[in-house]
């Protein structure tokens, strides 16, 4: 299955990845090859097969509703690139 440049640009935008202009042809080729590989799946009839999300078909365990975490802001924000007055900073978002 062949993707073209605009497909790759669209996907890169969806995934918020800046891709260098000169790398687009290689990505396009790589991604097309990978899609060819995965498309081998389409040869198999799986219409009666229940999709498997977890190998053990396990079910969700429930947590008690209790507050177990204290304020740990100083520690957690020590690795943040930009913090002011306890708020994470990003370039102005316009709605």
């Amino acid at each position: 299955m062949a993707l073209d440049r605009s497909d790759v640009e669209k996907i890169a935008h969806l995934a918020r990845l800046q891709i260098d202009e000169q790398d687009i042809p290689e990505y396009t080729q790589n991604l097309s090859n990978i899609l060819d590989l995965v498309n081998q799946m389409q040869a198999v009839d799986t219409s009666d097969v229940e999709p498997m999300a977890n190998a053990l078909d396990a079910v969700q365990r429930l947590r008690k509703d209790a507050v177990t975490e204290d304020n740990n802001r100083e520690n957690l924000q020590s690795v943040a690139p930009a913090v002011e007055n306890g708020l994470f900073q990003v370039p102005k978002v316009i709605e």
């Binding site: 947590r63 509703d65 209790a66 507050v67 975490e69 304020n71 802001r73 957690l76 924000q77 007055n85």
Partner: peptide, 29 residues
């Protein structure tokens, strides 16, 4: 109106200082 968050043990109380009720899970560490 739970005491803790849906997927973590941080408090849901309203009006706390910014990011004092956001634990490692809430911050998606």
């Amino acid at each position: 109106a739970t005491k803790s968050k849906i997927f973590s043990g941080a408090s849901t109380a309203f009006g706390a200082e910014p990011n004092t009720q956001a634990c490692a899970v809430d911050l998606a560490l």
